[in-house]
Amino acid sequence: MLTKRIIPCLDVKDGRVVKGIQFVNIIDAGDPVELAKLYDEQGADELVFLDISASNEKRNVIIDVVNQVAAELAIPFTVGGGINSLEDIKKVLRAGADKVSLNTAAVKNPDLITLGAQYFGSQCIVVAIDARYDESLGSWRVYTNGGQRSTGWEVIDWAKEAVRRGAGEILLTSMDRDGEKSGFHIQLTKKVRDAVSVPVIASGGAGSADHFYEVFTEADADAALAASIFHYKETSIEAVKDELNKQGVNVR
C-alpha cells in the first residue's frame, strides 16, 4: 500500500530559505540547495519550494534555484509562489520541478488550473489553499496573496472546484495553525479529505511526531508538510518516520 508522505517545505525569498510565524516575522533559515540535499538524505518523500519573493525581478532567482536543486535531488519536488501563467508553469517544469503549486493565481484565474492540467497533466498541478476559520460565518474561508486577502470562497467549495478543473493534489494550509506548532488542523483536513478525490497534503501547525500521527490517523491525510521543525532541527524526518513506524503508520 501507499505510504503516508512527509514533505519538508522551503519558503524561499530572494534565493534563501526563510520562515515566518503566521506568515509574518520572517527570518533566515539557510541555503535551499543544502537543505534540499539534507532532506533527501534524511528520507523526505518529496520537497516543496514556495517562492515568497516580493518582486517579479527577484522571482527569477527561483528558476536558478530550481535548476540547482533538481540537479541534486532524486525525489519529487513542487515549486509554488508567483506562478501566474502557463508560461510560468512551463518555465518551472523546464527548470526541473515535477509539480507546480498554484494559489493566488488559481483563485484569480481558475482557467489556469484547467489549462495547466490539460497541457501538463493533473499529476503536476497542485492547488494550494490557505484556509482561515471565520467565526461569524462558521466556516473556513480561502485567503490569497500570502494570507493577506480574503476571497469569497468557502474552503470545501473551492477545493471541489479546483479538483473538478483538474488539480491533482490539494495542499491545504491552516493559517490559524501556521507556525504555532500546536498540531495540524484535524477537523479542517478531514473535511477537505472527505470532499475531494485527490490526495490532500496537510500543512500548518506541525510541532512534533505526534502531530503527524494525528493527522494521518484521525484526518487520513495523504501527506503532511512542515517547515520550521525540520529547519531548526527540533526533530528530523528520520525521527518522525521512526515514531510513525512504531505506531503502525505505513511510511517509507
Binding site: 500500500m1 501507499l2 505510504t3 508522505r5 518523500d45 493533473s122 499529476q123 491533482g168 493534489e169 478525490s197 485527490v198 490526495p199 495523504d222 501527506a223 517509507r252
Partner: peptide, 10 residues
C-alpha cells in the same frame, strides 16, 4: 480509492 496511484509504494 484514489486514482492516480500516486506516491511511494513497496
Amino acid at each position: 480509492y484514489k486514482v492516480p496511484h500516486m506516491g511511494w509504494n513497496q
